[in-house]
């Protein structure tokens, strides 16, 4: 044991900036996941299994495949996302690290936004791997700018609500069961809008049909991010 030569006045914390705290939380999650790959591998294996099962279950002609693609894709993303959200908050809770985060002298919404960024990154990574595999299996071109935009907006809405509800569910003993029960009713609007908008792009529907769904996605993202920003402090406090 080394004897300490610490001084008691030289390392007073400056007020940590909101943005630096967000970046710190996101960096921490990404660095830890880069090592363990627990969360990404679970989400990825689950996603690949789902699209594989659907591929064999739905032996359809090309036209019908296009019409079901958006539903299959968003079912896959939604269930895989739940796995990731649960795991992301469980890591914080099991080792008491959530308390460690809450003890920091920063606005607690910075913790929320940091977690949203890392959860969104995990979800987008999984989607980036799933999309080309899906394209090959279903013989459908998914790399359309409009569709990619819908996937981004849908994922933002899903993660914005999911991170907030996962923070709530993780405080309970039945967190694995509770999160989907809490989450899916709340994200129904975002999933419906995402499925409709994705389907519109895939079937070549006119922009006037797609635009209302895109607007709904954007409105949902903004409203629920704002709500989460306001209530996160109360959700995580005992």
């Amino acid at each position: 044991m080394t004897e300490s030569t610490l001084t008691t006045t030289t390392h007073r914390p400056a007020k940590s900036s909101f943005w630096k705290a967000i970046a710190a939380v996101a960096w921490k999650d990404l660095a830890a996941e880069l090592r363990s790959r627990e969360l990404l591998s679970a989400m990825l294996v689950f996603s690949l299994l789902v699209i594989l099962i659907f591929n064999f279950a739905l032996e359809l002609d090309i036209a019908t495949r296009r019409s079901v693609t958006s539903g299959v894709l968003w079912s896959t993303f939604a269930f895989a996302g739940t796995l990731g959200l649960n795991r992301s908050m469980a890591i914080e809770k099991d080792r008491g690290c959530l308390d460690g985060l809450l003890l920091a002298p920063v606005d607690r919404s910075a913790i929320y936004f940091g977690k949203v960024i890392s959860n969104l990154a995990f979800m987008l990574i999984v989607e980036a791997i799933v999309l080309p595999i899906y394209s090959v299996l279903y013989n459908t071109n998914l790399f359309q700018p409009g569709l990619l935009l819908v996937i981004l907006l849908g994922s933002v809405g899903y993660v914005a609500v999911g991170t907030l509800l996962a923070s709530m569910a993780v405080q309970t003993r039945t967190r694995d069961v509770l999160l989907p029960i809490l989450l899916f009713p709340v994200v129904v609007p975002v999933l419906i809008a995402a499925v409709k908008a994705s389907g519109g792009y895939l079937t070549g529907a006119p922009m006037t049909d797609i635009l209302p769904w895109l607007n709904l996605l954007i409105a949902y993202d903004v409203i629920f991010t704002a709500i989460a920003f306001m209530v996160f402090d109360y959700v995580v406090e005992e």
């Binding site: 914390p13 400056a14 660095a31 830890a32 080792r95 308390d99 920091a104 002298p105």
Partner: peptide, 28 residues
């Protein structure tokens, strides 16, 4: 605060854990 749980991350090194908390506390 020190509790019976360590409040540190298994998949980070000791230095990375302290770097992370240093950023959260705005330590120069």
């Amino acid at each position: 605060v020190v509790s019976h749980l360590p409040l540190v991350y298994d998949d980070l090194t000791a230095e990375e854990n302290l770097t992370f908390y240093g950023r959260m506390y705005g330590i120069e």
